[in-house]
Design a protein around this nucleic acid. Structure first.
Lengths: 255, 255
DNA sequence: GATGGAAAAAGGTATGGACATTTATCGTGC
DNA sequence: GCACGATAAATGTCCATACCTTTTTCCATC
């Protein structure tokens, strides 16, 4: 009866121990034993309950975190954020997280920069005045250098950031964000608006694009159909991985 | 000089040790020091090289695996499968892996089953004869129970599998595959063809679908525009996680 | 009451060891 | 030559322990 290797609430003895603990905890999360918003017991407590080591508990919790059940914070604890799993695919895809991923995990190549005068439509889009002088920066986002092109992007930068434009020509990098750090530590973003647009045919030819992957087709079609998608990226260089992203539609979609 | 906490090839001392080792190994993978197809040094060897423990090496290798650089097999070693990172998103989405994920990570609810006679178009689609008696099974795939509907699916099953049809009515489960295991161990698949179709409006109403997430919109639009997408799933119950999937277009798309 | 620092609590990182399980290989015996 | 078993090698799992870092709490001080 009291098999020392058994796990409370889980009779089966197949597979590694952390997997069984994982299942037990998952059931508790789904069943509401650990309500959304609450803190679950600490690693030490769980290790005591399941009569195992902290290592094993951590392996189980790793799964729960990667499946979107909990978030963990040093000094605080493990908080329940969902009572159901989110596949990586849908969790990211159904929210802004996916675009966040695209922003930080992909590769941006700038094709050209040019000085423009805002027309009426652009002025409204970027929050400027018609006739005002801005810079237009065009680029293509890739899955990785030499990988699959994702979308064609036009960004708009106010003229007061003119001094950064030379930095842009030929820029290639994992992402694209222009920031100015002022003496008081405040960070100002140069790129005001980024439009993801259907890729012009000539650019497609120029880049020698094969008829793209699903990712390209889907994303491009979505962005196209939505009209315009505006995204502004903010990057905090002081922090290793703190990115913030705000996305809004330029015009309400018909839905 | 010979700081014991430093890592070969990496001068910086910021962040945890495994993160620095991670970067060094990543550079070697990108740079071709560890060529694609080869086995990288074992955990023990790496631990010795970096003067650290196996735990730390494993943390670093975990990252490399999760980013698509290497695959690891017990009893064999760690093999290089790519010299560049693949974001989870694009790696899966750009290939069949994504649909594989959808197949195993989502939830299938069968709406109805009915007996039909093949018309000419269907006959060609499923590889039967016009007038032949088959079964049509309609269902909706969800991200999870009660989650987001992904697509509406019609499946076709030859009449000789009639005995399995009663099992289907009301079926709900993580995936949908009907298999027969013969006495010789051979496995035969009951479901011949699965069509992903635009969801009928009445079903949408019946299910009370909110205007869906991106995932729904994108996937549905893609499937719709492609006309018909045929997928056949094969499931090997003998193996815990061996799924095979074959996908082909019913009709050549215009591209 | 506001401030600052100490202390506690929690997860994060790391060591060193042990044993289990899987896989490939090699040799032996048939 | 083939089958089979032993063996070695590599990753997988697990333990006990220690210390670090972050966050919160709370108390003493001003």
């Amino acid at each position: 009866m009291a098999d020392t290797t058994s796990v409370a609430g889980e009779a089966g003895s197949d597979g590694p121990r952390y997997a069984r603990i994982q299942k037990v905890l998952e059931e508790r999360l789904i069943g509401g034993v650990y309500p959304v918003g609450s803190l679950i017991p600490t690693e030490i407590e769980l290790a005591a309950e399941f009569n195992t080591s902290r290592f094993t508990i951590r392996e189980a919790l790793r799964y729960l975190r990667e499946h979107g059940y909990v978030e963990r914070r040093q000094g605080v604890g493990t908080r329940v954020i969902s009572s159901s799993p989110h596949s990586t695919f849908f969790r990211s895809f159904g929210s802004l997280e996916e675009l966040f991923q695209i922003a930080v995990e992909t590769y941006y190549v700038i094709l050209y920069t040019r000085r423009i005068a805002l027309d009426a439509e652009l002025a409204e889009l970027v929050g400027g005045l018609p006739g005002e002088e801005w810079f237009e920066v065009a680029g293509v986002r890739w899955t990785r250098p030499g990988g699959t092109p994702i979308c064609y992007i036009q960004s708009y930068i106010p003229a007061r950031f003119e001094h950064v434009i030379p930095l842009l020509d030929g820029h290639q990098g994992p992402f694209f964000a222009l920031l100015e750090r002022h003496s008081d530590g405040k960070i100002e973003e140069a790129v005001q608006e980024i439009r993801a647009l259907p890729m012009p045919a000539e650019i497609e030819r120029q880049l020698g694009l094969s008829k793209g992957s699903w990712a390209l087709q889907l994303l491009r079609r979505y962005l196209t159909d939505q009209g315009v998608l505006i995204a502004s990226f903010n990057w905090h260089p002081s922090d290793q991985m703190v990115y913030m992203m705000h996305i809004q539609r330029a015009k309400p979609s018909v839905d």
